[in-house]
Design a protein around this nucleic acid. Structure first.
Lengths: 362, 362
DNA sequence: GTTAGCACTCAATATAACGGAGTGCTAATA
DNA sequence: TATTAGCACTCCGTTATATTGAGTGCTAAC
């Protein structure tokens, strides 16, 4: 059986209605809801077909229909296609931007020196705004260059290592050494480290460079090694995989997610956060075009505990290739349209925000 | 009416039973439960008295009794008193320590350079161990001394400020300046800052010292001011009030907290974290003796959203006066005994852990 | 003071009855 | 041939009605 234009119209009407009400929708409703003037009986026939084709189901006999994952998929794909089509005339886009997202504007304009605080704020605002759970990952530093490294002597044979990466990402580490060390040596090591490593990415810090440096360091080779380790850790370490979440309790607004076993599973995933990395890698590894928005419906989700949800993600990218991911987690019947719109807004605003910072720096 | 010995025995029996079952407990149960050989009828009379006195209530006529907050209070106070009495002979204490908390031992022995990771780990373990929600605050730095401060020039008129406090608490800040600055000047400023401020607490950095320093800094007074601000922020700032939580979803294990409005409120409080500061200050401000454990029952809780819960808190203290707070949030019918025991264990272990670090440093 | 006995209460559970929204099918209609 | 009106049927959700049982308060006997 082929999917006629009319069937699609009906299917969309069913889904749209279900998104709004959360109740199974019957033929009579559609008959009045749509502009195509058809009796409920005709709709019923079409709906029977749609069910046979797997786009909708009845929770039980003598109930209305609700969309299947396949149904949602069609609806969402269609909507996304529609959006890129509309993107051609920029007018509409601008209009929305002005009207809709003052709150984010405000949030971003707050004086926040810490990226951490900013991201947490964005997550919170987005959760409040959409009534779904949100997550946002701090930008990853793949391909980032070392900008500056400095050793300082603290008391008691402790050495403070300060590492500054591109984008002014700063990390500290305290290293304990066994041998005595004097100011002059530290100065020399600083010069050595900076002249050798500054401007390099992790990939470029190969063994040759490092051992050459260790040779030059002489008796302090061990210390140099520790510093290099610290740098590697800074670039690769879990610290940079930080994820901020907000609005976990929004799920209680949707009865289909509120029973305590499902809620436990979901909120746990959001609290623990480590499962969320799967979402991030799924979003980033795939052949994503620049700024594309991804929708995972039900079982498509990279995270098992969200198989009853939909997850919508976007990546934001800083000029120097640092990527972060934003995700929205809600019921399958979430307002995809609004969510995608919000994500696009935030995407562009974060881009601007970070680009502006970048501009100030350089 | 006075509270006879027998009444207390019955009250405790009621509470103990209720803690275990979560069901209202009837006279017949008590009659068999306790060692005092009394018929259910007698118990009934006593229970009627206890109800009149406000220690227990019936959820409805013809149901058993459950404790009131007043009842819990008596029970808990008694238990705490009992514990301090038992504390005299250390034997029992040692025994428990060996047997009970290997898991924490393991957790603490993991190589964790980051305090953050450690505390998160403790929260998680404790939550898993007790089946309640947990929180733990990073140690506060009141009265902490500045150990070391260092400015470094980054590219584009940015200055990196590194601040090291006692306990090797490190903070960074990037400060943008308008005027050009050369290496030599930075070196001078570093010497000026360190010689003036090192070893001082926040209280000791008064206006006199600061303005004297600004004078010496000449054209870079503004920069000095910014550095001082950064230090103040480091000591006072919200960053240091970090709170880690875990096991929020444990509350679903207790039906009396599981309905979605209560759960939302509670989980929200744990997610947002800012309300939790009230618990911390309540725990720390009061005339707490060294390492005392506090129990807040129902409405006694400093946080409104926990009025249906009990909150048990303990402070751990580092040698140099840095204090942190651990809290356990559960239903009123929580296993107070076990919780208090766990907290004491963790308290002493954290103490050891940090003291050991301290020893390594100095 | 304690206890046995009894009538009473009330939540919780099971059972039955009812109403309504929605379906599938058939037959009539355009 | 596609559409529609009509009708019997299904099944959820709600309400009404018993039934059960744990537990109480009270009284009278020990």
């Amino acid at each position: 059986m082929e999917l006629s234009e009319r069937k699609i119209k009906i299917l969309k009407a069913v889904i749209k209605n279900y998104l709004e009400t959360g109740e199974p929708v019957g033929s009579r409703t559609i008959s009045k809801y749509t502009d195509l003037k058809l009796s409920s009986a005709t709709i019923r026939n079409e709906m029977a077909d749609l069910e046979e084709m797997g786009y909708i189901v009845q929770p039980h006999t003598s109930a209305g229909r609700i969309p299947t994952d396949k149904g949602y998929r069609l609806y969402v794909d269609d909507m996304l296609a529609e959006k890129t089509r509309v993107l051609e005339d920029k007018e509409t886009q601008l209009k929305e931007k002005e009207s809709d997202i003052m709150s984010l504007e405000d949030e971003l304009n707050k004086k926040v020196d810490k990226v951490e605080t900013l991201l947490q704020g964005v997550a919170k605002m987005l959760a409040k705004d959409t009534n779904y759970a949100t997550m946002i990952s701090a930008p990853q530093v793949t391909g980032n260059k070392l900008k500056f490294v400095q050793l300082s002597a603290l008391e008691d044979n402790n050495i403070l290592v300060v590492i500054v990466m591109g984008g002014n990402l700063i990390r500290n580490k305290v290293v304990k050494i066994t041998e005595e060390i004097n100011q002059e040596t530290i100065l020399k090591l600083n010069i050595l480290l900076n002249s050798t490593l500054t401007g390099l990415t992790l990939e470029e810090m190969n063994m040759k460079i490092i051992s050459a440096m260790e040779n030059q360091a002489g008796s302090h080779a061990a210390l140099v090694r520790e510093v290099v380790d610290a740098i590697v850790e800074t670039i690769n370490g879990e610290d940079n995989l930080k994820i901020y979440t907000s609005g976990a309790t929004n799920i209680f607004k949707y009865p289909e997610l509120s029973d305590s076993s499902k809620a436990t599973e979901l909120i746990n995933a959001l609290e623990e956060k480590n499962e969320l990395t799967d979402i991030i890698s799924a979003t980033q590894t795939s052949d994503s075009q620049d700024g594309e928005i991804k929708v995972y419906i039900g079982n498509e989700s990279p995270v098992d505990s969200m198989k009853d949800c939909s997850v919508v993600t976007a990546t934001y990218e800083l000029s120097d290739g640092m990527k972060g991911t934003i995700g929205i987690i809600g019921p399958k019947r979430m307002d995809y349209d609004k969510v995608v719109e919000k994500l696009k807004d935030i995407q562009s605003q974060l881009d601007n925000k970070f680009k502006k910072n970048k501009r100030e720096e350089s």
